[in-house]
């Protein structure tokens, strides 16, 4: 995944060949990121395509202080979050309502699961998560966001973030168990 400085400059200058090269280099990995935030492949591709417009629009602000892949990934993640929020127009405060706790949970619970599941199944489970759970889970697990950072990014409280993460984990664990039981019963 090597993109030299000249290609970045050419992309900024609007040279389509360089832009194509940059797209071809990073799109597969970024599509993986988008897929985790979306509920299906079409939505993931929409996010990818719109996010890459932003990448090209803002490439001149990339100062080379970090990796280009990391910079692009940050844009992709931000755009994915905005996209999901926009798509679920009234979901945002519903999501907050959904997490109102009537029971006490240990938000730091560590869930042990068998690991014989293939990535396709795991990805499918993530995509089936409710949008709120999915976003918090992705940010925490894959982007290494702390709860404070998640709260700032999503405009929710840290506690909400913790609760969402807990519920996402529990939901995933149950689904994994269900899948295992189905597999054993065959």
């Amino acid at each position: 995944m090597v993109i030299d400085e000249q290609i970045v400059k050419d992309c900024i200058a609007g040279k389509r060949q360089a832009q194509r090269m940059l797209f071809d280099t990073f799109a597969p990995l970024m599509l993986g990121v988008c897929t985790r935030y979306s509920h299906d492949r079409d939505e993931a591709e929409d996010i990818l395509q719109e996010a890459f417009i932003k990448v090209f629009q803002n490439l001149h602000t990339f100062r080379g202080e970090g990796s280009l892949a990391g910079w692009i990934k940050r844009i992709i993640v931000n755009h994915a979050i905005n996209y999901i929020n926009k798509r679920n127009r009234i979901a945002r405060h519903k999501r907050i309502d959904e997490i109102r706790e009537t029971e006490i949970v240990d938000v730091n619970e560590i869930i042990e699961v068998p690991d014989e599941y293939n990535p396709a199944l795991l990805l499918k489970l993530i995509q089936e998560l409710p949008a709120g759970y999915r976003t918090v889970f992705n940010l925490h697990i894959f982007e290494d966001f702390g709860h404070k950072e998640i709260a700032e990014t999503l405009g929710i409280s840290e506690n909400t973030s913790k609760t969402q993460l807990f519920k996402a984990r529990r939901w995933l664990k149950n689904k994994i168990e269900e899948a295992r039981q189905k597999q054993n019963s065959r």
Binding site: I111, L123, I126, I141, F142, L172, I176
Partner: peptide, 11 residues
């Protein structure tokens, strides 16, 4: 393994 690691490693 831990559920988080399972997902992180797999996808």
């Amino acid at each position: 393994k831990n559920l988080d690691d399972l997902f992180r490693d797999a996808i």
